[in-house]
Design a protein around this nucleic acid. Sequence first.
DNA 1: AAATATACTTAACACCGTTAAGTATCCAAA
DNA 2: TTTGGATACTTAACGGTGTTAAGTATATTT
Lengths: 212, 212
Amino acid sequence: MGIAERKEKQKQDIKKAILDASMKLFMEQGFENVSIRKIADLIEYSPTTVYLYFKDKNEILYNLHEIGFQKMAEYTADLWTIKNPLVRLHKMGEYYIQFGLENPAFYDLMFILQAPMECLQAMDANCEWKSGDQALGRLKETLQECMDKHLIIKGDIDAMAMTMWSMVHGMVSLAIRNRFDKVVTGDQQAVTLMTKGLTWYLNVLDASGNKT
Amino acid sequence: MGIAERKEKQKQDIKKAILDASMKLFMEQGFENVSIRKIADLIEYSPTTVYLYFKDKNEILYNLHEIGFQKMAEYTADLWTIKNPLVRLHKMGEYYIQFGLENPAFYDLMFILQAPMECLQAMDANCEWKSGDQALGRLKETLQECMDKHLIIKGDIDAMAMTMWSMVHGMVSLAIRNRFDKVVTGDQQAVTLMTKGLTWYLNVLDASGNKT
DNA sequence: AAATATACTTAACACCGTTAAGTATCCAAA
DNA sequence: TTTGGATACTTAACGGTGTTAAGTATATTT
């Protein structure tokens, strides 16, 4: 069955070519300029060919969104070398903010746009958002560890994780959707103020009494 | 000049008719189904006529976004009857969340979509986001009052306001963009968990020592 | 009555996602 | 080796989008 195998490989190659082209458009011209027609132009096929490899545009965007999570993982790679969970928690927030501000297009796809979630729901009504759940899981772990070691004030783990994620997501999403333009000017000042907010927040949470 | 006056009034009437039609489409079919052509159909003019009264679609969406802020003000109307600033702060967050979850389309327009901000920038590069700044201003006032009365731990007012806003915005925006679908199921549970997070957060901030 | 300004429309441009139907090309069985 | 069916891809079209240029009536002013 060497021939069927080769065909399968060819199929995967074209799938990859489509995703590469989408990625190129996405990086160079932003999300709203990724169109089926432009992708087709780039890989030199007709627009309809794209539909032989992907169900619809949402599925392509879902795949890009997954690449985004991979990219984010690169940012947070060294997080688990940090033994102190409170320090790790802080760094986690910083990395999240940094990733969001440095990759607004990916951030959009991962946490703001509906398209990838619509793809997920179309696949299966009960299908999980694996990437997102995984990331939230790591946040919960670290929070739990902080509580176990009496480093932060105790509370409902779900509510706490949700609150913490919401806080950094709120910062990043308001920033990249231009709601902070008058509050702060420029990315540098944005990072500074966000980090300040994060630090202050974690400091308040600190149960050790070592408040500065 | 009674004639010029009447003409001016007529012009305003059509502007209003366009906004009313936009509003109707917006409420009934959601943001993404507001199109110039549908608006024109509804007011029984040709699509191009719309452009005689509004520069572009962004300007229409900007106007709807302003209506959103008015609607939000209705939610928060009784806020200033609350004398205790910490209680008011809590209620402020609750109302914000409630408004967002009950009016996701408006929330989108006000705090997520780029269109209204693009209109703002097109009008004037240094033009302020009046509605947003006003709302943030009220949050800051209340926070400052809390600090002045030693009700919460002191900190940088800008960082604190930003953090607080980001937290509730993060909750609402993650919820309406379906990132909480596996964390919580349904609006009711969402509100419960968000309120829990908010309460816990403010409780941590509490400087009185009356922690529950 | 003629000239001008106002209000509005028609037609078009350049896009978009998506689908139905048609055409080559390749592979396997007769 | 020829035939028939699967495979891979394209053409053409549908119905939509925002937006603009050019044209046409109507109303006002000179």
